[in-house]
Simulated scan of single mutants.
Amino acid sequence: MHFLFRFITKSHFMKKHVLFIILLTAISVFGQEKLLVKYEQVSYPTMYDTNGKEIVQSPEMKKYFSKPVENYLTIDGKIGQYYKIEKLDNSQSSFKINMIGGIWDQNREFDFDKNEIHVEYMANNKPYILVDTIARKNDYQLTRETKKLLGYEVKKAEHKTEKATIVVWYAPSLPARFGPDRYINFPGLVLSVQFYMNGKTEPVTEILATSVEFNDKLKPYELKKGKIINKTELNKMIQDDEIRQKEELIQNQGVDKE
């Protein structure tokens, strides 16, 4: 009996041990998979003139701004890249906007292992790379509200300010902390974002995932080359650009500077 008890105990231990190894292997394989998420971003910007009055946009202008922009998010371990897919515009529309001067952000990379974020910026037609630390927390309120997106259960998070409300839907079953653009640090992958101006029922900007694909052969996006800057240097560049734009506006209006 003693021998039989030892045999059963040892056999039971071995089964549990084998099961643990299989489970650990499955987790390891899943963790090594690379994830590609495709998003569509649509913006409906409200525009104002120099007197703060809202500009009535023509149908052609509204159509131009509301054209969906396709973006990709690739995830490999603790590193993710969010980038825009450049496509040729073969439309016959006469309404075009050329970005001359100004400062705007483009593609970005999150490295949660190093806790760094790298963002491509264009400032007066020159490329820069902002290197900054990733904040460990965000100011969103997690709610119990749920729904389905692309077959995944997603949960709602919300952030309100005096002027705007941002609604985020994230999937707890998919890699946490990652998301489109700057919408990160949630306990699941962000699949949808709506940005509302307070008092408006329609979002100003909407980002929606259109597909989620696991692909081990996926190649990461490489940021463009540019001068490395920090947050302080970027803020200084933005302040200088705002001053320049105001001076140009005054000159164009024919108003003498005091």
Rank of each mutant, 00 (worst) to 15 (best):
E33T: 06
W104M: 09
K96G: 11
E153N: 13
I238N: 00
D113N: 08
T46E: 15
D113C: 02
N98H: 15
G179T: 00
V42C: 15
L142W: 01
K137E: 13
R108C: 03
A123C: 09
K246Y: 05
V168G: 01
Q253G: 10
S94W: 02
N185K: 15
K137I: 11
I129R: 06
R182A: 02
K236M: 09
E213P: 02
L191I: 08
K160Y: 06
F195C: 14
V167T: 15
G102M: 09
Y170Q: 09
P220R: 06
I243K: 12
I103G: 01
I207A: 09
G179V: 01
E120Y: 04
K155M: 02
Y196F: 09
S94M: 06
T232C: 13
I166M: 08
T161Q: 09
A209M: 01
Y128R: 14
G151Q: 01
K227S: 12
F5C: 07
P203F: 00
F3Y: 11
D240V: 05
N185F: 06
Q41I: 13
S11P: 03
I207Y: 01
Y121K: 00
D181C: 10
V255E: 15
I134W: 00
L142E: 02
F20D: 10
E242N: 10
S91F: 07
Y44S: 14
G80H: 00
I250H: 01
G52T: 10
E60T: 12
Y128M: 08
N71C: 12
E242W: 03
G102N: 14
E222H: 11
L4D: 14
V42L: 08
L223A: 11
F13G: 15
A26D: 06
D139N: 14
N125I: 08
L208V: 11
H17K: 05
L36M: 10
K217W: 04
E54Q: 13
E202D: 12
M99T: 13
V193D: 00
I166C: 10
K96N: 12
L223W: 08
I134L: 08
N198D: 07
S173D: 12
R108D: 04
I250F: 02
K63P: 04
L150R: 01
L24G: 14
P45E: 05
T50K: 08
E213K: 15
P59L: 14
